[in-house]
Design a protein around this nucleic acid. Structure first.
Length: 468
RNA sequence: UCCGGCGUAGCUCAAUUGGCAGAGCGGGUGGCUGUUAACCACUAGGCUGUAGGUUCGAGUCCUACCGCCGGAGCCA
C-alpha cells in the first residue's frame, strides 16, 4: 500500500440536485465547495482487504431496489458490483432522499462500512453513511429487461457496461495479454506491420481501397509478408494489429475489421509451427481459466471443455479429414476447402482443438511451400476450435526458394514488381521459415462460449454496421 | 450477391377467421425495514417501417421499396 493511499483528506467538488417542479426533471448544478472525506477510496474488487473499514467507492448505479425504509443500491465501478444498503434510521434525511433521485447509471460516490455478508454475491456489502451524487442519468436506454440485438448494437457504447459484455471484454483483455506474454517470454520481438499496403497481398480476398495521396492503397488483410521480412532480421517475431476484409460476409464468424496476432520464425518447419501453435493456444486457454474464473462463471461457460486444452492436439492430414467427413455422411468433393458445416463435423470428433495439415496446394495461398514428397499438398495447417467455433488459426511453412516463389507469383497473376521486396528475402540468405495467424475474436468467442464474434470486440465493424 | 425470416408504445413482445391496438419492463405518483430482473396500487405513453392496392372495414391479404436478423459463398 502506498503512502498516497493513506492520505485521509481529499478535496472534492460536490453537486446539488434540485427538482424542478414545473417539468418534473432534475436539474444538476455544481456548487463550489469543499468536502472532507475521511474514508479511503477503493476499488470494489479490493473489498476483502478492507473488511469492517469505512471506505468510499466511486462508480455508477447499476440497479436499485426499495423496501420501505431500507434501500439497496447496486453500484458498479468497473471492477465489480457491490450492494450498498441504506437504512433510513442510520443516515441523514438528506442522504436517504438522494436514493430517490438516483436513476440507473447515475454516477455517484458512496461512503460506508464494508461488511461481510453471505447473501452478497461478492461476499461483502457496503453499509452506507453518506452518498455524493456526481450526475443524474436521464432515461438510460438499456433497462434491466430483454433487448433485441439491433437495439443493443445501436447502443454498444452503453451496452459494454452490462455484466455479460463486461465479462467478455475482460476475457478478451486476458487473451491478448496471455498471447503477448507467450511470445515475449519466448524471446520473440514485436514488429508491427503497416496498415496501408500498396497491393492486394494474396490476390484472393476483397480489400478496402483508400486514396493515398492520389494513388490507391489498401487496408491490410494480413501482416504476414512483413513479418517474414522482420523474421529474417530478428529470427523470431510477431505482429499484432487490426486486419480488414471487405467481403460481404454475413455470418456469426465474420467481421470486416478484426485483430490477428501473427508469429513468424526462421528455421521452423511445419512440424515446429504446429507445435508452437498448440502450445500457444493452450497457454491462452489455461491463463484465462486461471485468471478469469469469475468472468467465465458470469458467462455460464462450461469450463470442463476448456480444462483439457493442453498439448498435444490431434493433428490430421487433409486426407484423414476427408475420410472423417465421409464416415459422417458428408458429401464432400475431394480437393475443396472445408466449409463451416464441415469444420463443425471435424471438430466434433475431438475434445480439443484439431489441426488439419497438408491441404491441396491449389486452394491455398501462393506463398505456401509444397511438400517435396507429395507436391500436390501445401505445407499448410489450420486449427479448428471445438464446439463449432471454426478456424482460429491458419498457418504454413513458407516457400523459401526464389525461382519457385517467382513461378507461383506468376501463376497467380500477381503484380511481380510489387513483390520485388518479398522476393529479395529469398535472394539474401533464404531459410526455411514458418508462421501462423490467430484470430482474436474467434478465439474469444470460443473461450467465452459467445455465439457471435460481434460481441467479442468492443466496437464491431460489420457489413451492415459502422455505428457507434 | 443468393436463400430464408422479421419490422406494432422508449424496450421486449401479444392481437383468434380481415372486425374497438394490448401486456410486461422502463418513466411518473403513492405504499412497504433484507431486496436479488424485488413487490403492490394508480398513471402517462401509438402515423402498426415507407408508398400504393384489394375490401363496408387492413397490424393482419397483395405489390414494390427501405431497414434489420439468420444462413450460404469467402475467410481468421
Amino acid at each position: 500500500m502506498s503512502c498516497l493511499d493513506l492520505i485521509p483528506c481529499l478535496y472534492l467538488f460536490f453537486k446539488e440536485i434540485c427538482l424542478d417542479k414545473r417539468n418534473g426533471r432534475f436539474r444538476v448544478g455544481i456548487i463550489k465547495g469543499r468536502k472532507e472525506l475521511m474514508a479511503e477510496i477503493i476499488r470494489i474488487s479490493e473489498s476483502p482487504k478492507h473488511e469492517n473499514q469505512e471506505v468510499t467507492i466511486q462508480g455508477w448505479l447499476y440497479n436499485k431496489r426499495f423496501s420501505g425504509k431500507v434501500r439497496f443500491l447496486l453500484v458498479r465501478d468497473g471492477s465489480a458490483i457491490i450492494q450498498c444498503v441504506v437504512v433510513k434510521s442510520e443516515v441523514s434525511e438528506d442522504t436517504f432522499e438522494k436514493t430517490d433521485l438516483l436513476t440507473q447509471e447515475s454516477s455517484l460516490k458512496v461512503t460506508g462500512v464494508l461488511v461481510a455478508d453471505k447473501r452478497a454475491p461478492i461476499g461483502y456489502e457496503l453499509h452506507v453513511k453518506e452518498i455524493e451524487i456526481v450526475q443524474i442519468a436521464q432515461d438510460y436506454p438499456i433497462t434491466p429487461k430483454e433487448h433485441g440485438i439491433d437495439f443493443l448494437m445501436d447502443h454498444r457504447h452503453l451496452w459494454i457496461r452490462s455484466k455479460r459484455q463486461h465479462a467478455i471484454l475482460n476475457v478478451r483483455h486476458e487473451v491478448i495479454r496471455a498471447a503477448r506474454d507467450f511470445f515475449n517470454d519466448r524471446d520473440f520481438v514485436l514488429i508491427d506491420s503497416p496498415i496501408f499496403t500498396p497491393n492486394a497481398a494474396e490476390g484472393t480476398t476483397t480489400l478496402f481501397q483508400t486514396d493515398y495521396f492520389g494513388s490507391p492503397a489498401y487496408l491490410t488483410q494480413s501482416g504476414q509478408l512483413y513479418a517474414e521480412a522482420a523474421c529474417m532480421s530478428f529470427g523470431r517475431v510477431y505482429c499484432f494489429g487490426p486486419t480488414f476484409r471487405a467481403e460481404k460476409s454475413k455470418t456469426r464468424r465474420h467481421l470486416t475489421e478484426f485483430w490477428m496476432i501473427e508469429p513468424e520464425v526462421a528455421f521452423f518447419d511445419l512440424q515446429d509451427d504446429m507445435q508452437l501453435a498448440e502450445e500457444f493456444v493452450s497457454h491462452i486457454v489455461q491463463t484465462v481459466l486461471k485468471k478469469r474464473r469469475a468472468e467465465l462463471e458470469t458467462l455460464e461457460r462450461d469450463t470442463s471443455k476448456l480444462e483439457n486444452v493442453v498439448p498435444p492436439f490431434p493433428k490430421i492430414h487433409y486426407n484423414e479429414a476427408v475420410e472423417i467427413l465421409k464416415k459422417n455422411g458428408v458429401d464432400f468433393p475431394y480437393g475443396d476447402d472445408f466449409g463451416g458445416a464441415d469444420e463443425t463435423v471435424l471438430s466434433a470428433q475431438f475434445d480439443k482443438p484439431v489441426i488439419v495439415h497438408h491441404y491441396p496446394a491449389e486452394i491455398k495461398a501462393f506463398y505456401m511451400k509444397r511438400d517435396p514428397d507429395e507436391p500436390q499438398f501445401a505445407l499448410a495447417m489450420d486449427m479448428l476450435a471445438p464446439e463449432g467455433y471454426g478456424e482460429i488459426i491458419g498457418g504454413s511453412q513458407r516457400e523459401d526458394d526464389y525461382d519457385t516463389l517467382l513461378k507461383r507469383i506468376r501463376e497467380h497473376n500477381l503484380d511481380e514488381e510489387a513483390f520485388r521486396w518479398y522476393l529479395d528475402l529469398r535472394r539474401y540468405g533464404s531459410v526455411p521459415h514458418s508462421g501462423f495467424g490467430l484470430g482474436i475474436e474467434r478465439t474469444v468467442a470460443w473461450i467465452t462460449g459467445t455465439k457471435h464474434v460481434r460481441e467479442t470486440i468492443p466496437f464491431p465493424r460489420l457489413m451492415q454496421r459502422i455505428y457507434p
